[in-house]
Structures are given as structure tokens and as C-alpha cells.
């Protein structure tokens, strides 16, 4: 009998091997992938997020927890896809034009995936037009714009403007984040929400789609 609490703890400890072995055993025991996610990975990631907020965990601990989640998801994703719609929804993310930092964005992706989001990553230095094209073609609930540089923050505003001009703004919720960004600035440029870091991004995204 696989105890999913052990999987949660493997995530918290960043124990990649244990996360892989426990997920494999859970699937082999016939547990549905959604349940392994809900009762194993998500509580583990929540604890990681809490420890980060509380100042117990820092970036190294987030990275190794992310590694453990990635290992588990590798096994779970085929089964999750067979189930049809993604658990939480579809999330489009990219670092805004002019900025090529991706650590923050990648931590957000790890937290989102681990929380049941299907994430499409447009990468770094993404132009407003590229965001618009992806929104137009895809079926995303949320678009996340990451800006680590003060000087590229205006490009997040330009992306939102471009979505409006293309008639796509109402199709998606827009989240912004990154080191220099603030909730006030997010409101000012017409974003729906702001997340200050990876762990909070997963929480804010869930709130935006009413699944918190």
C-alpha cells in the first residue's frame, strides 16, 4: 500500500528517487493519477510553498523539490492526459520582450505543473505579437507575463494592450510577476492579478479560476 503522504514528504525533501519510486508504485497499485496529484504532489508543494514563505526554504530547496515533482510528473502526465481536460486548466507563460531571465518563470512553471496545470512555455524575450498569436490559437485560461527587469516592465503593459487590440483580452486572465513588479503596478497596467514569486503564483492562479 502506497502512502501518498510519503510522496508529499519526498517532494518537501527534494528526494527525486523516492518521488519517482513512490509515484511508480502508486500507479502500479492502481491509484488514479489525479488522486496521486491531489493527495501526493499538491500537498507536498503546498508545504514547500509555506516553508518558502516562512523563510525556511530558499531557491536551492525550491529547485530540488521541483526536481522531485518533475520526476513524478513524468510518470503521471500520460495518465493525466488520458483523463481529458487538465486538472486545473491551461496556462500560457513567457518572459516579456527584452528580458531573457527565466529562473523565476521556470519556478512558476514547476509550481503550476505540480498543482495540476497544463503549462505552455513561450520562453524568454516574447513579443506582444507572439503572446497574442498563442492566445488566439490556444485555449488558455490564464496568461502569465514575467519581467525581471525594471526596464522591461513596460513590455508587460504593451502585451496587455496588444491583447486588447487583438480582441483577445476577454478570452484570458492575465497574471504578472517578477522581482521589480508590485500589485499596484499590476492593477495600473490592467492585469487581473500579481504574484510575487513561484509559490504564490500557483495560489493566485487557482483563485483566478475559482479553484482555490
Amino acid at each position: 500500500m502506497v502512502n501518498l503522504e510519503d510522496l508529499s514528504q519526498a517532494v518537501v525533501k527534494g528526494d527525486v528517487e523516492a518521488a519517482f519510486a513512490l509515484t511508480k508504485a502508486a500507479l502500479e497499485a492502481g491509484l488514479p493519477a489525479g488522486e496521486i496529484l491531489d493527495r501526493g504532489l499538491i500537498p507536498g508543494l503546498k508545504e514547500v510553498g509555506d516553508l518558502f514563505e516562512e523563510g525556511e526554504y530558499y531557491l536551492p530547496e525550491l529547485i530540488v523539490s521541483g526536481d522531485a515533482v518533475a520526476q513524478a510528473l513524468e510518470l503521471l502526465e500520460p495518465a493525466l492526459r488520458q483523463g481529458g481536460e487538465p486538472h486545473m486548466g491551461k496556462y500560457l507563460i513567457g518572459t516579456v520582450q527584452g528580458d531573457i531571465h527565466d529562473l523565476g518563470k521556470n519556478i512558476v512553471i514547476m509550481m503550476l505543473k505540480g498543482n495540476g496545470w497544463e503549462v505552455t512555455d513561450l520562453g524568454v524575450d516574447v513579443s506582444p505579437e507572439e503572446f497574442c498569436a498563442a492566445v488566439s490559437e490556444g485555449d488558455f485560461q490564464i496568461v502569465g507575463l514575467s519581467s525581471l527587469l525594471t526596464m522591461t516592465m513596460p513590455n508587460a503593459a504593451r502585451t496587455i494592450e496588444a491583447l486588447k487590440k487583438a480582441g483577445l483580452r476577454e478570452k484570458v486572465k492575465v497574471m504578472v510577476g517578477g522581482a521589480p513588479t508590485t500589485p499596484e503596478w499590476a492593477a495600473q497596467i490592467g492585469a487581473d492579478a500579481h504574484a510575487k514569486d513561484g509559490p504564490s503564483a500557483a495560489r493566485v492562479a487557482a483563485e483566478l479560476v475559482g479553484k482555490s
Binding site: 531557491l59 536551492p60 530540488v64 529562473l103
Partner: peptide
Amino acid sequence: DVGYFRAMVK
């Protein structure tokens, strides 16, 4: 970044 932070722990 990722390789460095990972190595700090592992």
C-alpha cells in the same frame, strides 16, 4: 542557476 542551486543541496 538551476545547476548551481541543485548542487548546493545535492
